[in-house]
Design a protein around this nucleic acid. Structure first.
Length: 604
RNA sequence: GCCCAUAUGGCUCAGGGGUAGAGCACUUCCUUGGUAAGGAAGAGGUCGUGAGUUCAAGUCUCACUAUGGGCUCCA
């Protein structure tokens, strides 16, 4: 047996650890390295080692589950003491001590009855046992510490040297909000020290991209304690960025046959009763009273669009009818989930509702998917798609749900688009396709969405006149491409680390005059650039040239141009180009051509 | 909402029971400079809010507010 053997993969792809394999095992060997399989074993064992350390350090420690997850591992447990960030070091130290004791990790089998008896005083383990059907259970033992576990584990503690406990958190037992809260510690482990170092470095780099940090550095947006949580303010730079994005999207919508509309921010509660929002989404709504009548601030824009559709009679010739709105919505998100711009209580959706016939669903869904793709490509985003099915709180017949869900799947499958399924994750009125983008530190956020809805048209008696002169009900597709400007700009900020492409950059050019006598030339250029929709700043403060160049370079703008005697004379500019990372001179005329070219890259 | 942590000038942070500190930013003056920090002076904080302990509270206690990390991934 090799020194570095920590397990096998059998022909079904299962990982078998050395304890389970015994003397003889066919199957591919898993060596101690950073392969996915090896890391799974290493991290799982590190979670156990952590549990052993916690068990020695704290009184009455009881353990729930300690799985390997996408990024490392965690263990959920309960102790009498409070555990904070500071305690992680203490636990890490204990873990290192335990490794030195060179325990073997051994495995033995017991029956479920034996297990129930063994863990009779441990309610957490009993909870774990209650979720297991098998009668044959296994225990892993290292030193005095034993834990119910199905493995796999490394054969000895010496394989667990490179780990780091990353955070403490509370976690509901089994993820159930009604269950009790346990303490969870997350950690990460690798096969070698350098990989761990690299990982920690990467996390640090990611933090530098955090949109909240860059957002305040660049003065894009802010929050204000006195005004309330989750309510973003857009500062001038951020507002500029945002309106540029809005303008790009406006044109893209018009080009694709959408028409702008706008509904009120607040509607009578009865309207929300009819829609089902009051019953299914009421917890997230802000309600108020006007002249003795109850009103609800809109959490979605669909109801407004339905009223507009119904205002004039519609024919089948009008379908598919596409209404879009940058709709401001308010939602009462739980205080604990608010997160910078990525989860707020007031935000603007790039929302649209497509009224169409059932036959038009598939082609319309495809069109939206293509729209999404062109926006994602514009910003070089990787994204994933997920189909969400009927949730617990929902309106409408199962049959209708089934049909709509199938429609979405077919549309994606016919175009060979990959997707995953989120059972029960749909909106209350229909199934949906969600488009998810990953943030700087690997968290996935829902951005765009496409939802099929047979229910609201029925509830609001939405109709059109069909070819045969009968009245029929259209289907509604709810869709958003960015999702919300807030979240999208948050992710965009992390994606570009604040160095936005020229077509949305808040300030696109900074002009640095060499001395005071060149200020008028700089202002002249500024005016001409504004004529072609380029936002500029002139850095003409009473500071040294070097200082002003340095400050300009730190602003994350696409171009810094320097102008002095030579430029004034030749009507040119000396350019520091962020994209090319070099300096060169251009005639001002040609510079404007180049800028227009880069502005055009934003067209979709 | 729940668990843990954090809260000091616009920003980043130091201080840790005895009457507030630094750097950057800001203001004024000198300097008018050809490619990443020229110099000098100055202004700015009831240390998140409210209670409590104490002769004395940014500093200790509690509550609230806000912020941060989590709360699907099944021995």
């Amino acid at each position: 047996m090799s020194e570095n053997l920590i397990g096998y993969i059998d022909n079904q792809g299962n990982i078998i650890d050395t304890q389970s394999a015994g003397q003889s095992c066919e199957g591919r060997a898993i060596e101690y390295d950073n392969s996915d399989e090896a890391l799974e074993i290493i991290r799982h064992s590190t979670a156990h080692l952590m549990a052993q350390a916690i068990n020695e350090l704290y009184t009455n420690a009881k353990f729930f589950v300690g799985p390997v997850v996408d990024e490392g591992f965690y263990y959920d447990f309960e102790v009498d003491e409070k555990i904070g960030e500071e305690d992680l070091k203490k636990i890490e130290k204990k873990m290192k001590e335990l490794i030195k004791k060179k325990y073997k990790i051994e495995k033995y089998e017991i029956s479920k009855d034996e297990a129930l008896e063994k863990f009779a005083n441990d309610e957490l383990k009993l909870a774990v046992l209650s979720r297991i059907d098998d009668d044959k259970l296994t225990i892993y033992k290292q030193g005095d510490f034993e834990d119910l576990c199905r493995g796999p584990h490394v054969p000895a503690l010496r394989f667990l040297n490179n780990f780091k406990l990353t955070r403490v958190a509370g976690a509901y037992m089994g993820g159930d909000e009604n269950a009790k809260m346990l303490t969870r510690i997350y950690g990460i482990a690798f096969a070698d020290k350098q990989s761990l170092k690299d990982y920690m470095k990467m996390m640090e780099e990611a933090k530098k991209r955090d949109h909240r940090k860059i957002g305040s550095e660049m003065e894009l947006f802010m929050f204000n304690e006195e005004s309330g949580a989750g309510l973003p303010f857009w500062m001038p730079k951020g507002a500029k960025l945002r309106y540029k994005l809005e303008n790009i999207l406006h044109k893209a919508h018009i080009k694709r046959g959408y028409q702008p509309v706008r509904g009120p921010e607040i509607l009578k509660a009865d309207m929300w009763r009819t829609s089902g929002h009051y019953a299914c989404y009421g917890e997230n709504m802000y309600l108020t009273e006007i002249d003795g009548q109850e009103y609800g601030i809109k959490p979605m824009n669909c109801i407004g669009h339905i009223q507009i559709f119904k205002q004039t009679s519609k024919s089948y010739r009008d379908l598919p009818l596409r209404y879009y709105e940058y709709g401001v919505v308010h939602r009462h998100e739980k205080s604990g989930v608010l997160h910078g711009l990525l989860r707020v209580r007031e935000f603007t959706q790039d929302d649209a509702h497509i009224f169409c016939t059932p036959e038009q669903i598939a082609p319309e869904v495809i069109k939206v998917v293509e729209f999404v793709d062109s926006v994602m490509k514009l910003f070089n985003f990787d994204y994933t798609m997920e189909i969400s099915t009927k949730p617990e709180k929902a309106i409408g017949e199962d049959e209708v749900w089934e049909m709509a869900t199938q429609g979405l799947k077919t549309a994606l499958e016919e175009n060979n688009l990959q997707y995953t399924i989120d059972e029960g994750g749909g909106a209350f009125y229909g199934p949906k396709i969600d488009i998810k983008i990953t943030d700087a530190i690997g968290r996935k956020w829902q951005c765009g969405t496409i939802q099929v809805d047979f229910n609201l048209p029925q509830r609001f008696e939405v109709e059109y006149v069909a070819e045969d002169n009968t009245r029929k009900q259209p289907v509604m597709l709810h869709r958003a491409i960015l999702g919300s400007f807030e979240r999208f700009i948050g992710i965009l900020t992390e994606h570009y680390a604040g160095e936005f492409p020229l077509f949305i950059a808040p300030t696109q050019v900074i002009i640095v005059p060499i001395s005071e006598v060149h200020n008028s030339y700089a202002k002249e250029l500024q005016a001409k650039l504004l004529d072609i929709d380029i936002d500029t700043e002139v850095f003409d403060k009473n500071e040294s040239l070097n200082k002003r160049i340095r400050t300009a370079e730190k602003q994350r703008v696409p171009f810094v141009v320097i102008v002095g005697d030579e430029e004034v004379e030749k009507n040119s500019v000396a350019i520091r180009d962020r994209r090319k990372k070099e300096q060169y001179n251009l005639s001002f005329e040609y510079f404007m051509v180049e800028l227009s070219k880069q502005l055009n890259e934003g067209k979709i």
